[in-house]
């Protein structure tokens, strides 16, 4: 399953719920303001790092670049472009958008 999170971890607890209900082997894609959760020392960083052992975490590179946080990313978070986003959706049987 592909989980998509688009909110800053400072604005909502969506990512926390997502991390709680994401099964091992699933993927989380951070898009829009969700990419702030992929930066070092952010409020959700510990949760993201802990999750990296069992789920894959991706951040949408155009959103990362738009927000100027390219150089602040956590190790282990993989960048994808829109084509990579499409591939992730195709590779997983279903998607849940944590709106």
């Amino acid at each position: 399953m592909l989980h998509i999170v688009n909110k800053s971890p400072y604005q909502t607890r969506n990512l926390e719920s997502c991390l709680r209900l994401a099964k091992a082997g699933s993927a989380i894609l951070l898009i829009e303001d969700g990419v702030y959760a992929a930066t070092r020392d952010n409020i959700a960083a510990a949760g993201v790092k802990a999750a990296l052992g069992s789920v894959s975490v991706y951040a949408l590179s155009p959103d990362v670049e738009a927000r100027g946080v390219n150089n602040l990313l956590l190790d282990g978070v993989k960048l994808v472009d829109y084509g990579g986003f499409v591939d992730l959706v195709a590779e997983h049987a279903n998607t849940q958008s944590w709106l």
């Binding site: 688009n6 829009e32 155009p62 472009d81 499409v86 709106l99």
Partner: peptide, 25 residues
């Protein structure tokens, strides 16, 4: 689920659709 300009949702959807078409989907 959101209108134009206030939220990025429709921009992201548009880029997703374009990328999907480019990949032959």
């Amino acid at each position: 689920s959101e209108g134009p300009y206030t939220h990025q949702a429709t921009d992201t959807a548009y880029q997703f659709v374009k990328a999907a078409l480019a990949k032959g989907h």
